[in-house]
Amino acid sequence: MKTLLTTTAIILGAVSAQAQTVGFSQIGSESGWRAAETTLTRQQAEERGIDLRFSDAQQRQENQIAAIRSFVAQGVDAILLAPVVATGWDSVLEEAAEAEIPVVLLDRRVDSSDDLYLTAVGSDLVHEGEVAGQWLADEVGDEECRIVELEGTTGSSPAIDRATGFRNAIEGHDNLEIVRSQTGDFTRTGGKEVMESFLQAESGNEICALYAHNDDMALGAIQAINEAGMNPGEDILIVSIDAVPDIFQAIANGDANATVELTPNMAGPAFDALEAYWESGTEPEKFIQTDSALYTQDDDPMAEYEARKDLGY
């Protein structure tokens, strides 16, 4: 009897070593970034020989809960969850914990106790702003620099955190000053319209740099600067956040100077942590922060563009 059990355990172990099964409950495909996250998760799973079960919740928590229950019932080896909202996850996470299936949160956090999940992978929005601010501070050195800022949608957490981070980084540099700050709603049209008003209000040549909370607004602003007869990237330095493919083209053309990546590759660090856990039972930190990598004109922007253009952005 005991032998039989042991044998079964060995067989199971052998099987699991060969092909782990991971369920992935994704929010939906509301933005290009999220589509890229899905694409990259699939790619990562394939590279590692992991069998990925994908479920698109179409922005509904009940769909996600149903998906997780179904993953538990299927007896997967781990669950990736990109939660659509922060609350209401306790009971379903408990079910997964009882079944001893590790859950890794991607990109967004939940309000449940951190005992209920293995770890969370995400970026630090404040840190992104800091990286952008630090780059600008290094770039201008001691020169006077009047900065205009394109904010995200008023009151949204990326807009608040990215503004905070940027200010943290330029604090103490008395030569750097944010002279105008206005929301462009994260859209290209908004970025262009607001940049036009900045150029009118600050009479263009007195603006030294633009900080945009996302690349789309920066791309709109670049057009506005061009149309005002100035040279974006030279007359006005441009730094933004997200690293979507189109900004790399602009960087390659010399229209933009730098972008900070909000990586859609949340799955890579998640799978790393899971593999360590499966092999040796190592518990990872409760929050794994992804890199907020900085890309500039020196980083072969065209290559970065090529690498990203098919991810679904």
Binding site: E30, S31, D185, T187, R188, T189, G190, K192, D216, L219, G220, Q223
Partner: peptide, 14 residues
């Protein structure tokens, strides 16, 4: 006009 202005069609925000 909106599309030509930003040289792109933004289905979510236009």
């Amino acid at each position: 006009i909106a599309t030509a202005d930003i040289r792109g069609a933004d289905a979510n925000n236009a």
